[in-house]
Design a protein around this nucleic acid. Sequence first.
DNA 1: TTGCGATTGTTAATCATTCTCAATATAAGG
DNA 2: CCTTATATTGAGAATGATTAACAATCGCAA
Lengths: 146, 146
Amino acid sequence: MKEWEEQFRAFLRGRGLTFTPERRAVLEEIFAEHGHFDVETLHDRLRSRGSRISIATIYRLIPLLTESGMIRPATLRDGHPTYEHLFGHRPHHHLTCVRCGKVVEFRQEEIEKILDKICGRHGFSPFDYRLGVRGVCAACRKEETG
Amino acid sequence: MKEWEEQFRAFLRGRGLTFTPERRAVLEEIFAEHGHFDVETLHDRLRSRGSRISIATIYRLIPLLTESGMIRPATLRDGHPTYEHLFGHRPHHHLTCVRCGKVVEFRQEEIEKILDKICGRHGFSPFDYRLGVRGVCAACRKEETG
DNA sequence: TTGCGATTGTTAATCATTCTCAATATAAGG
DNA sequence: CCTTATATTGAGAATGATTAACAATCGCAA
């Protein structure tokens, strides 16, 4: 059984909820890729594989996945929420190109240390942080200038 | 004439748009406070001062304010967009308490330097960045523990 | 003052998300 | 293998925020 399946089953059990084929299908689809996803594309992907799952089921699943730590909200793409899964993925952050939409992920421990210091100063106990940089990528800048 | 009025007028002029009493009223209201705002509370605040402005007018104004650099999107509060104005305010970031919703702003040049380095490595030209930390503030933690 | 384009408020439309509900599936206990 | 109580599902209706359409008004330049 896959690592994430085990973890999600445990979470559901703890709440008296059940692991269903629909839920498995959604998880499979989420973990099939490392990129970001939103509810609609997830639904489309499942449908295109022959699943008859309702989009409402996916919407209903999102909070469970978030609370169980399987996924977390990522950056917003044109104002609606996207998510990323948290397995085989260390916490990371995003450079987003505002022209082509390309997203580059990066990781920087140095920043985490600074943040810990800042949180300490303000008496905060942090449990998540998010860093998003918006800009223009090399390719788009080139196109723009020339 | 206030600094921000001058700047917004210039922006509108450059686009062949006009500075109206409604637009002034919205700006006044935005700059009356330093905190975050969303469209609905802005509308309520204006109404409670006797204005008859329509909420559609405010929605229509948001992109103009963003493009002119008067405001920028801030963190999301329960999934709908909030903004902050950019006058008398240096760029800053947020610690948000997930229990009581308190937001502490902080500023850290060191982080900006690190980000510049990272952007350089990826060929990005950054023009905005956003750093949000979610956690529990001292008061709430105290309450929690007993 | 006139005229043209921008702006406004109202109302209707749209879109994502959530809710309702009847039907079905699940897990646990016999 | 049955039974039962509860959780889950899909379909479609309902919601709520945001956007669009439109006719009436306003603001600016000539």
